[in-house]
């Protein structure tokens, strides 16, 4: 993998852009959340790639193993994964409530219903 130089970073950026595209272009709310997930995970990949050392091992001490890959990005990303699932769960709860209130989870239809309500008033 090292022969390809900064290949990892390019993959991470491409994944981020795919997630971003799903997030802003697709109208379906569940799909938006999956897109957000893809985006977040690609950022994790970017950080973990930065922490890798050639020939490194996981940062766990036992007899005479070195060098270690950098443990600090790992710690940050552990926290970030947990925050990601927290946002996902709140987002899904909101989707369920929106479905209850509007009967749809498509952004276009929700907007149309909002416009109708505005006209009625």
């Amino acid at each position: 993998m090292s022969a390809l130089g900064n290949f990892n970073y390019v993959i991470a950026i491409t994944l981020a852009m795919i997630g971003f595209y799903v997030l802003i272009e697709r109208g379906n709310l569940i799909k938006k959340l999956v897109g957000l997930n893809v985006f977040q995970t690609s950022v994790f990949l970017l950080y973990i790639s930065m922490g890798k050392i050639e020939g490194g091992t996981p940062p766990i001490h036992y007899d005479g193993v070195a060098p270690f890959s950098n443990p600090l990005p790992h710690v940050l990303i552990l926290t970030a994964i947990v925050v990601a699932v927290a946002t996902l769960s709140v987002g899904l709860a909101l989707v369920i409530r929106i479905r209850e209130a509007y009967g749809t989870i498509e952004e276009d239809e929700i907007r149309a219903l909002d416009d109708q309500l505005g006209d009625a008033e």
Partner: peptide
């Protein structure tokens, strides 16, 4: 896991 982040891999597999 390939990138040496085994703890992160555990968490991602369990949570993600």
């Amino acid at each position: 896991t390939i990138l040496d982040a085994v703890d992160v891999a555990f968490t991602e597999a369990a949570v993600g």
